[in-house]
Design a binder for these strands. Structure first.
Lengths: 154, 154
DNA sequence: TAATTAAAGACCTGAATGGTCCTGTTTCGG
DNA sequence: CCGAAACAGGACCATTCAGGTCTTTAATTA
């Protein structure tokens, strides 16, 4: 279904929620806020920390806080950090498919991958925030002419 | 990794290859052309037939042929037929997430889903074909390579 | 009527994701 | 100085689901 992994989904939610708090927040606290089970929250935060999205503070009174503002984080970068490279198919870069099937579709998939990547890069976590941000998001999308650029590929 | 299911991948390849043949083609023949195992080809063709992408002819001298031209089939429609709705997350249409987690991300995901959907709708199977399209496609890739890099820290 | 081929669905298997837990290390408070 | 709190970094298990195979039935043609 072309669906996002749940971990990446969690990561987005956690980052947005974390951005709404001030000071450091513990993972149990974030679990309470988001409804995601605590161990899973901790796991996601570790990954996010390793990729520089959040700063951690160890010890008592420790916790996490954003490393930069939500506006400076793209949806694409978060997904890439949690799930790895954003690509629809295994055969990228014009390499032969690992299955050895002779699709001969050359780099057509790359175009699609790039288009989707660009789309996700154009959406910041800031614009994922609820309420008033909604209208601005729609505005952003309208400006994204990625589909037009790629259209028909020729 | 935000990846497409392999069945959908096969479906694209099979349709493109089928469009290059003339007359009806049996599934064993298509298996030979594409390198995909025959039972899987048959399975995919059944789905494609049910969704009106191909026309089937039973009995001796039977087989499959395209119901319409490749130019009239979008990548999005094929994926939707094989994999179901194209959506990154389970929570669509502003409904509450099934997990009951209070993400409160309003309809932000819908915007992303719509953006990706329209991107895929803008790409026809015709433009996925190899050969002459390759050079132009590769050219596009090179132009988009910069934005393609995953931004981690900055 | 016999051979060929699609239709339909049941069923098995294996990989991978999601989720949990454990141990170690750091930091703060008493 | 000691204990509690909280992150770091793994290992580990389990469930799900996609991928693939097989069997039976129906239709068409020669």
């Amino acid at each position: 279904m072309l669906k996002l992994s749940r971990l990446a989904d969690y990561a987005i939610v956690i980052l947005v929620k974390l951005g709404e708090q001030d000071g450091v927040v513990t993972s149990p606290a974030l679990a309470g806020i988001t409804g995601v089970p605590e161990p899973t929250v901790a796991k996601v935060l570790k990954v996010l920390s390793a990729h520089g999205f959040v700063l951690s503070q160890r010890g008592a009174k420790g916790g996490y806080r954003l490393a930069r503002s939500l506006a400076e984080m793209s949806v694409a970068s978060v997904i890439a950090a949690v799930d790895g490279q954003i690509a629809l198919t295994a055969c990228v870069g014009g390499r032969e498919c690992d299955t050895g099937l002779s699709c001969g579709l050359c780099g057509s998939w790359d175009v699609i991958n790039t288009a989707i990547r660009s789309t996700l890069e154009g959406i910041s976590l800031e614009s994922m925030r609820p309420k008033e941000a909604c209208s601005t998001v729609l505005h952003q999308i309208n400006k994204l002419n990625v589909a037009q650029t790629i259209r028909e590929g020729a």
